[in-house]
Write a protein that binds this DNA or RNA. Structure first.
Length: 512
RNA sequence: CGCGGGGUGGAGCAGCCUGGUAGCUCGCAAGGCUCAUAACCUUGAGGUCCCGGGUUCAAAUCCCGGCCCCGCAACCA
């Protein structure tokens, strides 16, 4: 396989980007960068979901047309991802013409094949909320928002024969154990599928919801969320060309949070089946960030704004925290204390300080000039190299199972060892004896290899830092991509730059 | 019997799928080093891995039961 297609969900434009959006997007970006580094053609899609009642209402509330409102919020998402350095390849909006057209094509196709029918839908409708409630949602028979009893109304809607594909879906999930992962979510889906699947309401009458894509076979109805929002994953590729679609679609890796598991694990594959399209390759599901609001400064409230985090701590520090702290699939706690702790311990102390000490010695002892490596390696030298080889192997394994926190951990195990090696070999002591200076040069050569290798390994996670490391090494060849073996990268005499503080220690929680 | 997750040294977590000396970060104690961002290195104290059964030569890890927390339950990642 030489392609991989990675998607984030389409973010609903009823709110500005928050921590949840940011996490999924950063994970997607990291996976893309990693795959690209592994030699794959990686394509990352993100975008915005812009239709629906909530948007129409929000637009009205701010005195705007729905499209103008969506334009505004969508632009905020896009510029946020740009500012965060997210390497997306295409940004799709569900209001894009090509998308609307494609959605209609798919609807027409499924309608023609008989899997969409006109039926009656009855339910408890609250005129205040302008939405239906299920019996379970009602509190004491009343709408939880308006404290009023909803009216039971019936309305004609179009339905997708989802139930028809239930068994095929179960069979598919069972035949492909890693279709939905981590496994807990697969189990959850299979558990849900033990109950009969009802058909899916996919339209709303225009009289009640205008802001949507009209059904091609009945202009009095518009598409309700599912067909509109999910199909983007395919429409974006189709828009870029049939060859792009053919190359990437079979490799699709969707990234989502657990709240939209059901639509992606059940509605979407059955829709694809009905449309005669192959299924995605993996559905990758992560957990929630739980706000530790007790430890958060008040002005931050419960909203973590990505740009604010970038401003305060730097994008890489923020990325590092998110990727290192959450075990993909499980919930994790977000707190500034934990973030500061991580940044100080792992980035400032372990990585940053390590780079400083190595470059400082290289500068002080040899004016930055790399010294030659003799054929004879000490036991420590070989062990150091092996630790990084091991880190690379483990990283690969953990990336394949989406365990980003473990992938990073394996690099830091090696970095810890590099700090230990520095003390064990003590070049700063040896240097005092002029006869031992060649050995000091060798040790530093190995330590520069550590910087190069660590830079390569962390590049998908901390792209800016990796670039800075490369700059400090000052090599003409791209140090982050080079596959040259340990010890053969630096030409003797090549000058590296003096140290620079990569991550300043954060002294205390800001109380702004 | 709605569904799911969790309960591991002072705090926060990983490990559990693929049983076999209980690991990480922070904090604490003592020492070392001086190249470095008051960093880095070494050592130490501290744990009935929620409880009770079971399987096994062996269980934090698998199975059964119980207790206690926490999310979700048709469109907030």
């Amino acid at each position: 396989m030489d392609h991989i297609y990675i998607t984030t969900p389409l973010y609903y434009v009823n709110a500005e980007p928050h921590l949840g959006h940011t996490y999924t997007t950063i994970v997607a970006d990291t996976v893309k960068r990693y795959c690209r580094q592994q030699g794959l053609n990686a394509f990352l899609l993100t975008g915005t979901d812009e239709h629906g009642d909530k948007i129409a209402q929000a637009a009205k509330a701010s005195g705007m047309e729905p499209k103008a409102y969506a334009d505004k919020i969508s632009a905020i998402f896009r510029s946020t991802w740009d500012a965060c350095g997210i390497a997306y390849d295409h940004f799709i909006r569900t209001t894009d013409d090509y998308h609307k057209k494609f959605v209609q094509q798919v609807l027409q196709k499924i309608y023609d094949s008989g899997d969409i029918y006109f039926g009656e839908y009855g339910g408890f409708y609250c005129y205040g909320c302008e939405r239906f409630y299920t019996e379970k949602e009602l509190v004491g028979g009343k709408c939880p928002d308006h404290q009023k009893e909803p009216a039971y109304i019936q309305e004609k809607n179009y339905f997708f024969r989802m139930g028809k594909y239930q068994q095929r879906l179960i069979d598919t999930i069972q035949a492909h154990p890693d279709l939905i992962r981590p496994e807990r979510y697969r189990s959850e889906v299979l558990a849900f599928l033990r109950e009969p699947l009802e058909d899916l309401s996919i339209s709303r009458p225009k009289s009640r919801l205008e802001w949507g894509i009209p059904l091609p076979f009945d202009s009095d109805h518009v598409t309700y969320v599912w067909f509109d929002a999910l199909i983007n994953y395919v429409s974006a590729l189709k828009f870029l060309g049939e060859d792009v679609f053919n190359a990437y679609w079979p490799t699709a890796n969707h990234l989502i949070a657990k709240d939209i598991l059901k639509p992606h694990a059940i509605y979407w594959p059955t829709m694809l089946m009905a449309a005669g399209l192959p299924l995605y390759k993996h559905l990758n599901v992560h957990g929630y960030w739980v706000m530790d609001s007790g430890k958060m400064s008040k002005s931050l409230g419960n909203v973590v704004r990505p740009l604010e985090m970038k401003e305060r701590y730097g994008m890489d520090a923020f990325r590092y925290f998110l990727l290192r702290e959450m075990a993909f699939g499980q919930d994790a706690t977000f707190s500034l204390d934990a973030l500061i702790n991580r940044v100080n311990a792992d980035l400032a102390n372990n990585l940053g300080n390590f780079v400083s000490r190595v470059l400082a010695m290289q500068e002080k002892y040899f004016a930055g000039a790399v010294q030659p490596l003799s054929g004879e390696w000490s036991k420590e030298d070989a062990e150091l190299r092996d630790k990084f080889r091991q880190a690379e192997v483990e990283m690969k394994r953990h990336m394949e199972s989406l365990q980003f926190h473990r992938a990073l951990e394996s690099v830091w195990v090696a970095l810890d060892h590099a700090n230990r090696y520095t003390v064990q070999t003590s070049p700063f002591v040896l240097f005092k004896d002029p006869e031992k200076r060649p050995r000091v040069g060798e040790i530093l050569h190995h330590l520069l290899e550590v910087i190069r290798t660590a830079g390569r390994l962390i590049a998908p996670f901390l792209p800016d830092t990796a670039k800075e490391l490369q700059t400090l090494l000052a090599t003409s060849e791209n140090a982050l991509d080079s596959q040259k073996p340990w010890g053969s990268f630096f030409a003797p005499g090549h000058r590296v730059l003096p140290p620079k503080v990569l991550f300043p220690r954060i002294e205390s929680t800001p109380k702004t």
